[in-house]
Design a protein around this nucleic acid. Structure first.
Lengths: 122, 122
DNA sequence: TAAACTGTATACCACACAGTACACGAAAAG
DNA sequence: CTTTTCGTGTACTGTGTGGTATACAGTTTA
């Protein structure tokens, strides 16, 4: 196992960036790197999956830049947004249990709960 | 601000351990440290809040040892269990949104949802 | 064809994390 | 009163995180 793990995040954003680039030259690696505030060489490593972690802040900027969902990109990096974490940490007994109980629930069940909550059912 | 931040985790487990120790001498710092697998000097630093982080594994062992809830102790350390994190990372669109929407929900509302889920309402 | 721009290779960095190893003086137990 | 146990002070360690700085060759662009 001398080969690197190659998490899918790098490949994913590279593909998305290059697809945007076909329509707009401002989506070169260098220019995107400049807009999210990292060195081009570093974003290059990120896109090639060379174990170059991005901070939550940079991931969010990148999500805005590439028109992707920030939670999805964070998840691809093995992270969870600090705001979401805070909700859980403030009431761990309630939320840790709720999430574990929903682990195997099908999407439509979670969606139904989401809608209930959004309808202000409390 | 030369004083350390003193997060409440250390004080909390120290109090709990010393309370158990009054009834059972096996709850000395040294013996508890041995049972959870760290050096006594390190647990000492932990209990005094000297910026000595415990790994998730050790926190769980400590929770069992002190008869505390693991999610609560993890939360006091600013952490969230890896199993809970995994649930969110596998379906970030659903779970990140659900948790954010429940951020300001009162306990009883979350509890009601918990009961619904446990009653197998999907 | 010269200038600008592109992606990447290499070297380096500070700090956080999660500890170990050992010595010490005080207290408790025998 | 000696031995054991106790909590703590100090020094050190390897790995992960989150990057910067610079140089370089290939490709566009004017």
């Amino acid at each position: 196992m001398a080969v690197s793990p190659k998490n899918p995040f790098g490949a994913y954003i590279r593909e998305k960036r290059e697809s945007l680039r076909k329509k707009d030259r401002r989506f070169s690696l260098r220019q995107v790197a400049a807009r999210i505030g990292v060195e081009p060489s570093y974003l290059s490593k990120v896109e090639r999956g060379e174990n170059a972690p991005l901070s939550e802040e940079k991931i969010k900027l990148l999500a805005r830049e590439l028109d992707e969902d920030q939670d999805v990109l964070l998840a691809l990096c093995g992270k969870i947004g600090a705001d979401v974490q805070e909700v859980i940490r403030k009431r761990p007994l309630l939320f840790a249990r709720l999430i574990r109980d929903l682990k195997n629930a099908p999407d439509h069940a979670v969606l139904r709960i989401l809608r209930e909550v959004r309808d202000g059912k409390w």
